[in-house]
Amino acid sequence: MLIDGTTGLEYGFGGDRSALPSAAESCDDAHRISDTLEAVSGRTGLENITVTTTLSHYVTQVIPRKRGDSLLLVVALARESTNLALAARQIDEHARKLLA
């Protein structure tokens, strides 16, 4: 799912939409975590968020834009069939190509 990182607007999705939270909720979660970390470190610069449950990995990848607000790529992965390190790398590569 590709969403606007500021407004929470959903631009599009692929696969099983029901496996993901709403675009607005995903955006709110990213803001909340970014704000918390900024309060602690005094810096911004969130790159990704990975949340793992017993069944799934949920990866939120920040996609910076040269001009304009960042986007968020939100992906749900089945835990039993996913190498998280490899998946994170592929998601990062995909995110880089998306707006190239």
Binding site: G8, A24, E25, C27, D28, H31, R32, D35
Partner: peptide, 8 residues
């Protein structure tokens, strides 16, 4: 949590 969105 000021500045953080509120679930609807």
């Amino acid at each position: 949590a000021a500045g953080v969105a509120i679930r609807q």
